[in-house]
Design a binder for these strands. Structure first.
Length: 326
RNA sequence: CCGCCCUUAGCUCAGACUGGUAGAGCAGCCGACUGUAGAUCGGCUUGUCCCCCGUUCAAAUCGGGGAGGGCGGACCA
């Protein structure tokens, strides 16, 4: 796979394609980041962007993971001490998942976000950003909740981080689009250069197949799930025997194969009894999806296989969590 | 600083005037049907009624106090 394809595979959107191509021409040593609000247990949403980071590492880029402790504080997630603690656990799980510890720079937001220069730049951003715009950019804000001042500052800091971490590319889920666009529009006003952005898709909810809204309350698979729990969750997932369900729905089982399994495994073996056709091996997502569509692959067999591979991906992190808790 | 409104199931809310210790929709869970899930049937669960004090035989409901949230007014330094 050539570098450009590796960088952009499974991306929902890149801004802009020209800038990404330029990066792909000379990726060595280029700095790329994802910011995460510390969470004690990683789930598939985190792992989707982590997969992209692994791709970019493979492409030769330097990966920066921002452990956004100040952001978490602004989002009322606890004291700095508590947040630090969950951030450390998050870091351990990322490494267990496959981010090379020696090639990944883990940075706490508080290491630079409290500096005077940063603060003054932040105030300048506040000066030119309306509350309306800031609130719309705040992905973390629960719908219906009335924004606090902290919630409005939050996305402005995200926009600034991209400059202060000296990045060449910003990565995030599609839910981060508005923040990134705010960055691209406002950061030149401060005399800095806007950076290109890459957005991963937001995977549909497992049980309903409703997508595009990063609903935090839906069922998701996390690092603390047991093998049995994963099997149970995958088995109860929405999965019509087609790749393009009615209406706005997605097939979450296929999405997990596409975004989580195939990027990390060279081949996927579906084990099934002779009665249903015997084992099949897939080397790419497309052929698996096509077989589901045609009926050559039954959803129940797809689910069993998915659970097995997801379990493999989760296992190291699960082990790490067990260690941290003992 | 002043005024008004809100707070009941996981969520959105009804019930309050005319006290009798709680309901609907959605969600969720369990079965049936499908070699998965969904859809469709059938069944089921859920509550500090924001807190405290008072009145009363009896308070989600009435009175007083408090907390949290929302909105507006005043102020134009």
């Amino acid at each position: 796979m050539d570098t450009y394809d590796l960088i952009t595979r499974n991306a929902e959107e890149v801004v802009t394609d020209e800038e990404i191509r330029e990066l792909a021409d000379d990726p060595d040593g280029k700095r790329v980041y994802v910011g995460y609000e510390p969470s004690g247990v990683l789930h598939l949403g985190h792992l989707l962007t982590a997969n992209k980071l692994i791709d970019l590492q493979e492409a030769g880029m330097e990966v920066v993971v921002l452990l956004a402790d100040v952001h978490a504080y602004l989002n009322d997630k606890g004291t700095f001490e508590e947040i630090r603690d969950t951030a450390e656990r998050m870091k351990a799980q990322f490494i267990a998942y496959g981010l090379e510890e020696t090639q990944t720079e883990f940075v706490y937001g508080s290491e630079f976000q409290l500096d005077e220069e940063y603060t003054l730049d932040l105030h300048e951003l506040e000066l030119s950003t309306t509350m309306n715009r800031a609130q719309r950019a705040m992905a973390e804000l629960q719908s219906g909740e009335t924004a606090k001042v902290s919630h409005l500052v939050y996305p402005l800091m995200q926009a600034l981080d991209i400059e202060y971490l000296d990045l060449d590319l910003a990565v995030g889920g599609l839910d981060q689009r508005k923040v990134h666009m705010l960055h691209r529009e406002e950061i030149p006003e401060l005399g800095y250069e806007a950076r290109p952005c890459l957005h991963t898709p937001i995977v549909a909810d497992l049980t309903s197949g409703e997508g595009k809204m990063s609903s935090s309350d839906g069922v998701t698979i996390s690092m603390e799930d047991s093998t049995a729990e994963i099997e149970e969750k995958v088995n109860s997932a929405f999965c019509p025997p087609t790749r393009d369900p009615e209406g706005d729905l997605e097939n979450p089982v296929l999405e997990l194969f596409e975004y989580h399994v195939f990027p990390r495994f060279d081949e996927v073996v579906v084990e099934r009894p002779e009665q249903y056709g015997g084992n099949v091996t897939y080397e790419e997502y497309e052929s698996l999806a096509a077989d589901l569509e045609s009926g050559d692959l039954h959803p129940a067999d797809a689910k069993g296989t998915l659970a097995t591979y997801l379990d493999d991906l989760i296992e190291p992190g699960r082990e790490k969590l067990r260690e941290l808790r003992s």
